[in-house]
Amino acid sequence: MPERVDERGPGQGEEEHERERRGLLRAFGLAEVYNPSMVPTLRPGDRLVVQYGAVVRPGDVVVLRHPFRQDLLIVKRAVERRDGGWWVLGDNPFVENDSREFGTVPDELVVARAWVRLRPPREVQRSLGGVLAWAVSAVRSVRADRSLSRRLRAR
């Protein structure tokens, strides 16, 4: 979790400003995907740029603590607000390690919101065309307007 940064008031110096700037940078981090519960949007080995403490909206991909094993972080899509927290689902309909199994997830267990997926290269690229093709597909938004709409059309 990022450090808490105090709000700047009038008369604060450069030291406080620098501490605030560093706090904002710590609000972002990387997370790695290890299981197939979010396929096709995310695959094992993908990395996510996440923002800690961000506002979550329906359709966002989030990193959260598993309600039954809070030492385990999982990645799911926040589908809707319900009494008691968020209803979260994986994009892979064959994996049920989500709210269908453990119910709603309280807000305090939602750790971060994912912004961008970074897909590492599967092999060493030997040509400029291969590097360019990888670069185009490697960085992709995980926003719901893209991934969720594709998933809903397929059903």
Score class of each variant (00 low, 15 high):
93 P>D: 02
75 V>Q: 02
26 R>N: 14
82 R>Q: 08
112 A>I: 06
138 A>G: 12
38 M>N: 15
60 D>T: 06
122 R>Q: 13
134 W>P: 12
18 E>R: 14
141 S>D: 10
135 A>S: 15
110 V>L: 07
91 D>R: 06
10 P>I: 11
66 H>Y: 12
63 V>P: 06
39 V>L: 12
99 S>W: 03
146 R>N: 05
13 G>K: 08
115 W>T: 01
36 P>M: 02
107 D>Y: 08
89 L>V: 07
53 G>R: 09
53 G>C: 06
25 L>N: 05
6 D>G: 11
124 V>N: 06
18 E>K: 08
114 A>M: 10
111 V>T: 09
71 D>A: 09
62 V>K: 03
79 V>T: 01
38 M>A: 08
41 T>E: 08
143 R>S: 14
78 A>L: 02
110 V>D: 04
49 V>T: 13
15 E>P: 00
96 E>P: 00
19 R>W: 03
144 A>N: 04
93 P>R: 01
107 D>R: 07
80 E>W: 00
25 L>C: 04
32 E>I: 12
79 V>M: 11
103 G>N: 02
49 V>K: 08
57 R>T: 09
109 L>R: 14
104 T>L: 00
123 E>G: 08
92 N>K: 05
35 N>K: 11
8 R>N: 10
53 G>A: 04
126 R>G: 10
17 H>S: 12
83 D>E: 11
61 V>W: 01
88 V>T: 05
6 D>S: 14
20 E>Y: 11
111 V>G: 08
43 R>Q: 14
146 R>L: 15
93 P>C: 01
95 V>S: 05
85 G>H: 00
22 R>M: 12
97 N>Y: 03
70 Q>L: 04
51 Q>R: 15
47 R>W: 14
138 A>V: 11
38 M>V: 07
33 V>L: 09
43 R>Y: 15
116 V>Y: 15
